[in-house]
Design a protein around this nucleic acid. Structure first.
Lengths: 212, 212
DNA sequence: CCTTGAATGCTAAAAATTTAGCATTTATAG
DNA sequence: CTATAAATGCTAAATTTTTAGCATTCAAGG
C-alpha cells in the first residue's frame, strides 16, 4: 500500500490567490525553538507557514513531551479554530527560523467565499493530512518499533528537503514522535544499522537506499 | 481539554443541497457484515452513509484485524479517491443494515463547483475528523489501556445514538479498535468495573455517569 | 587543547503486555 | 429443555518495553 503524503496548502494555490492570502494576513517571524502559541490560547484564524517548520505537541500527564506532528513550509494550521470553534489544540513552536502569516477569521471567510479554488486547495490539503493521520494511527497499533522508526525516517528523507539522505534528528525526538522510550529507540536503531538499513551519526541518521 | 467530536457531512447541508446530492448518486443497501469495498479496489467517488454504520479496517501482517474507524450515518468517505487520487485505503463493511449513496467523480465535481455551501460542509467534516484522528493517535501514545478504553466507551455512548448507556460491543472489538490484546482489554474492563466506572454485560457495556 | 553540556551507549531490574491454552458463561436455535 | 457456538474469564509463561542509572562519545566555546 502506497503511503499517502500530505500536500501543503500553498503549492496548491495559484500565485494570485497565494499573494492575496499572504497580503490579507499579519506575518511574524520566530527563532528556533520559540513558542508560537500554547494550547488553549489564541483567537480563531488560519496560520500559514511561509518559512521554516512548526512542531506541535503536548506534555503528557507523565511529564514527557508528545509530539503530534511537524508541518513544513507551505502548510497551514488552526483550521479547527475556524471550522470547529475549537481553541488551539496543541503547543506550537518553531523549528529553525520560521515565518508565519496569520489570517483573521473574518478575512479568511471573505477570501474563502470569493475564491472557489481556495476551498478546493484546503480540501486537498486536509484530506491528505487526514489519511496520513489515520495511517499513522494504524502504524502505532500494528508495526514493530523498528518498522515504525524506519518508516518515519524514510518519510523524513522524502519530505524533509534534506540534501542527501542524512537526516538531522536526535534519537530522543524519534522517541517523542513515536511514543517510545529513548532506550527502545536506540536499541531499534542499532538493530537497523546492523541490518545495513541505515547509518547512525551524532544528531544525524542516514537512510540507506534500498535496491528495490 | 475538550475532545473534538467529528461532524457528519449531511446535517451540515441544507435540505435542498442534501437532496440534490442524494439524487446525484447511485444508492445501494448492504446487510450486516456485508463487504462494501475492499482496499485497493473501486473507482473514485464520494460515498455517503444514509443509514447504518460502516467499519473501516485492514488485516495486519500478523493476521489480526485492525479497525481504523467506524463512521455513522451522515458521514461520507472516499474523499481520498477524489482529492488525493488514491485508491480506497481500507476494507469497508456494513455494521447493521446500511444504505450508501455513491456519487461519481464528475458529478461530485459539478456539485462542488455549483454549491459553495457544499465545500464548506466538507471542510468542517474533514477538519473535525482530522483533529479527532490526531487526538486518537496522541491517546495511543500517552494513555494507559484503561484510560483509552474508558474514553472510547464514553465516545461511543455519546455518538452512538444508543438508547440508554448500554453499548452493544464485544471486548474483542475494543481490542481491534485500540490495538490491544483481548486479555488486556478484559483485565482493564474488570478493573474499571471494580472502580465502579462501568458495568459489564454479555456483548454489552454500560458506562456509569460520572457525577462530575 | 581543554572543558563542558548534550547526546548516545549500555546494563539490569521492574513493569506491562502478549501469547496460548483451557474453563466458564451466555444467548439462541432446535 | 438441551445442545451449541460465541463470548468472556482466567492463568502462567514468554516477550516486550520502560525505568533508572551511569559510562562514553561528540562538538563547540573558551
Amino acid at each position: 500500500m502506497e503511503p499517502i503524503y500530505n500536500q501543503p496548502l500553498l503549492p496548491l494555490l495559484s500565485k494570485s490567490v497565494r499573494d492575496a492570502l499572504i497580503a490579507a494576513g499579519r506575518s511574524a517571524t520566530y527563532s528556533d525553538g520559540q513558542f508560537i502559541h500554547q494550547r488553549g490560547e489564541g483567537g480563531p484564524g488560519l496560520s500559514i507557514i511561509l518559512k521554516g517548520r512548526v512542531r506541535f505537541g503536548t506534555y503528557a500527564k507523565s511529564g514527557t513531551y508528545i509530539q503530534t506532528s511537524v508541518l513544513n513550509a507551505g502548510h497551514c494550521f488552526g483550521e479547527a479554530t475556524l471550522f470547529a470553534d475549537a481553541p488551539r489544540a496543541y503547543d506550537a513552536d518553531a523549528l529553525g527560523e520560521t515565518k508565519i502569516v496569520e489570517i483573521s477569521k473574518p478575512r479568511f471567510e471573505m477570501l474563502l467565499e470569493q475564491t472557489p479554488s481556495f476551498a478546493n486547495a484546503l480540501l486537498v490539503s486536509l484530506t491528505t493530512r487526514l489519511y496520513e493521520a489515520l495511517e499513522f494511527a494504524d502504524d502505532l497499533r500494528t508495526l514493530s518499533p523498528e518498522a515504525r522508526i524506519l518508516k518515519l525516517l524514510t518519510r523524513l528523507t522524502h519530505s524533509g528537503g534534506f540534501s542527501e539522505n542524512a537526516i538531522p534528528v536526535r534519537q530522543i525526538d524519534i522517541a517523542y514522535t513515536l511514543g517510545l522510550s529513548r532506550v527502545s529507540v536506540g536499541k531499534a536503531l542499532n538493530e537497523l544499522q546492523r541490518q545495513g538499513q541505515l547509518r547512525l551519526g551524532y544528531k544525524e541518521i542516514t537512510v540507506v537506499e534500498s535496491r528495490a
